[in-house]
Structure formats: C-alpha cells, structure tokens
Amino acid sequence: MSRMRCAIVGSGNIGTDLLYKLLRSDVLEVAAMVGIDPGSEGLARARAEGVEATSEGPEWLIEQADRFDLVFEATSAWVHRMNAPRYREAGLMAIDLTPAKLGPLVVPPVNLEAHLDAPNLNLITCGGQATVPIVAAVAAVASVPYAEIVSTVSSVSAGPGTRQNIDEFTKTTSASLVEVGEADHGKAIMILNPAEPPILMRNTVFCALGDGYDRDEVADSITEMVRTVSSYVPGYRIRAEPVFDEDLFRTPGGDVKARVVVLLEVEGAADYLPPYAGNLDIMTASAVRVAEAVAAAR
C-alpha cells in the first residue's frame, strides 16, 4: 500500500511539531511543508529532514494539488477559512488544526470513526483535545448538565496564531464540550502563563453532575479514558484522583448538587519545543491519529 501523501500548511510551532511526528508514521508521507516566510525556522527544519519546503504559500500547493492526498492546516482560523474552499475544489482532504470549525469536530477516543469521509475535519484546540475526552467519559455514565474547562499553557508555547485566535479558541472549545463531549452546556477558559522555566500544559475539567450518578462508575470511566488518551499522547496524565464536591452549584445548565473536578497535565514528547509544550503534542498527536485512521479507511 502506498503511503498517503500529506502537505503541512503553516510552518510555526504546530506545523513544525507535526512534521516530526509525520516523519515517524508508516502510513503517512510528509511530501511538503508550505509556509509564507522564507526565513521560517520550520521550513529550514523540513529541508534538513529532506522534505520539500516552500515559502510560496497555499497557491503553490493548489497548483500541484494532484501530488497530494491530504492537507494539514496549521495556520490560523481566518487563514483556514480562506484556504478551505480552495482545498476542496482541488480535491484535497483537510485536517484543520486551527479553531476555524468548518468541518465536524473530531476527538480521536470519542468520535474518530464518525466522520472519516468528511472533506474537512476540525481538531478543535489543544484544550479541547485534552478535555473533551474526560467530559465524554463522565457523560457516558452520568448526566452532565454543564461542563467547564480551564486550559493553561506556557506563554512561549503559544505562537502568534494562537494568540490572535484566543476568541476562536474559547468559543470552539466551548462548543466541543457540548457537540462532542455531550454536556448540555459548555464553557472554556484559556490562560497563558509566562513563568520561567515554562510550565507544563495544565487542564482542569469541571463537570456538573445530575442526580443519580455513581461515584465509582464516574471515577472508573475517567481513569479508563486517561489511559486511552495516553496511548497516543504518552505525556497525558491525571494529577490526582478525581475530586467529587457536594454543594449547591448554580450552573448555566441548571442547579446541581454535585460536581467532579479532574486535574490534568500534558508533558510533550519534545519533538520540536521542549516537554513543557504538551499543548503542541496533544494537537499534533491527535492529527496524526486522525490521518492514520483516514488512511486505513481508504
């Protein structure tokens, strides 16, 4: 079987981290990296690995679309909104690592199989990839009228694309807690922390619990999900046992008498930025996982 020919559009933090992960794949071939800045470090790194790299932007890609099967978009939400229709016209499937949210939202351990034939798949955000699995795990065994997540990343690991997209990040992640996580209402919060040395990516998930939940069942479901995610993101782990709090919480999904809090940490594989940048890792590892599933389905 010939490998799927992939192009990475965007040569920033995400694109470069993705490059190294794709180079290890048996079923995906990274055929080109496309940027817009001739001086980009990502493009230089691609060339050093023997990958064709160009600073001529998506036009270059569209002109020779028949050389590729799949595009990974690692630019920013507004750039992807401009590029997506052109990829589609050129017959290129797109896996979108920006929060543009044009195609269905995909989180590998929750709904990987559901959308493999869609022309455009959206990977939400790093915060979404880290937290939606937990919300889904809780919602699988209990009613979750409201889920909230706080995602904190080190300032150095958030490039200009992420910074300009902070509103889209928040909104797309909020939507994913409902659309994929299956909470009734969702809210996402994103924080940048400039501490030196940089902090590991941290995520906190709060799920409101409707009446009639079983504590052990909820805890087991969470533990099982952490194990599943860590199978493709090795640095993904829970900081402590899930915390159950009983009180009256007046959430946007209605009043509830209990919540569960899950504190997570993601240590990166250090393919590009050092281990603190787990936010890059979980995004690019998820992208590779999705693309490999697409390849297998063809």
């Binding site: 904190t152 919060i189 924080i191 906190t204 915390v243 809090v261 504190l263």
Partner: peptide, 8 residues
Amino acid sequence: GQEDMIID
C-alpha cells in the same frame, strides 16, 4: 485566572 491551581 488560574484559580483551578488552588485546588491542585
């Protein structure tokens, strides 16, 4: 904004 770290 990192109130969640208080629990941690």
